[in-house]
């Protein structure tokens, strides 16, 4: 249908694309009008301060401000890449980012589908409410609890004992860091993350279920053919956007999970930027590394989007 409209328009206005653009713009003036206020906010509050990224290529001098500080080209980035720990930090970042995506992304979807299959509204509501609670607990408290649970006399070791395993100090070294980091992310985020899918599922045309029932579909078939397609736009969107977060970890959480036995091994880019750029007050250097991360993240999102578009054009962001 859309395609048809376009061909018609194209055929008629082959002569002047600019005129055609304005004609369409006028035709869609209500839609354009709706965008004006939100876009104005976006321009003022997101694009307004954006000139600040310039200090990535400058030696920031507070007295001169962003505009008048001296240009240093790519010096800040060169400094980052010549840092002796650079490769180690990048590899650790990728490791944490990729594993986080793989393990944390599906959990809210599974939870939402599972909840959607519950017939008892009371039970469903209770489970939902409970599953959101961890979202509100601050990361400091969570890391304190993890430290306690992983100690020799802690909860995790009690569980290990049940299975006959010898107790280990899980806080020591780097071995259990990923378990801590990802496990707590799932614990804290799965319930909250499922809200968005549940809200999409609530919009499923129930007549589809009736059809499936008549066809004699079993539960898994119904999940696959009715529920999953219903949340597909949302899951794809979240996947595309999450793929851009591979390089950006929660630095507070990682800093809190570090201790003297593993501090040098657990640095990722975000903790590095924090210590260099914020704690040491080097705005220019921190901004430069952040800018690099942003560029790579944007490329990642664009790539994922292209892949998605190749598979199913309907689901891509644009």
């Amino acid at each position: 249908m859309t395609q048809a409209v376009n061909t018609v328009l194209l055929g008629r206005n082959r002569v002047n694309p600019v005129a055609r653009f304005f004609k369409l713009l006028w035709k869609q003036r209500t839609l354009v009008g709706l965008c004006v206020l939100p876009m104005a906010l976006l321009f003022v509050f997101s694009y307004g301060p954006m000139y600040g990224v310039l200090i990535a290529f400058k030696k920031y001098d507070a007295g001169l401000g962003v505009w008048d500080s001296r240009w240093v080209g790519f010096n800040n980035l060169v400094e980052f890449f010549t840092n002796v720990n650079c490769l180690k930090i990048i590899l650790q970042t990728l490791k944490v980012g990729i594993f986080s995506l793989i393990f944390t992304y599906p959990m809210p979807i599974i939870l939402a589908l599972s909840l959607n299959e519950v017939a008892s509204k009371g039970f469903k509501r209770t489970v939902q409410s409970i599953s959101y609670i961890p979202h509100f607990i601050s990361i400091v408290v969570i890391c304190t609890m993890l430290n306690e649970f992983g100690s020799l006399s802690g909860l995790f070791n009690s569980i290990r004992k049940l299975f006959g395993a010898a107790p280990v100090n899980m806080n020591n070294g780097t071995k259990y860091f990923m378990f801590y980091y990802i496990g707590s992310a799932i614990w804290q985020g799965a319930g909250w993350g499922s809200i968005i899918y549940l809200s999409a599922l609530s919009n499923v045309d129930t007549s589809l279920y009736d059809v499936a029932n008549i066809d004699g579909a079993n539960r898994f078939q119904k999940i696959r053919h009715v529920a999953l397609p219903a949340i597909l736009p949302t899951t794809t969107m979240v996947l595309i956007l999450n793929s851009g977060n591979i390089l950006s970890q929660d630095y507070t959480k990682i800093l809190l999970l570090q201790n003297n036995t593993n501090r040098t091994d657990l640095d990722v880019i975000s903790t590095y930027v924090y210590t260099m750029g914020i704690a040491d007050g080097r705005f220019d250097y921190g901004t430069a590394v952040n800018l690099l991360v942003s560029v790579v993240s944007l490329i990642l999102v664009l790539t994922t989007n292209t892949i998605v578009r190749a598979i199913d054009p309907e689901q891509s962001i644009w």
Partner: peptide
């Protein structure tokens, strides 16, 4: 104590 460097309490 083997937890000398990790025991928060």
């Amino acid at each position: 104590n083997p937890e000398y460097q990790t025991d928060d309490s």
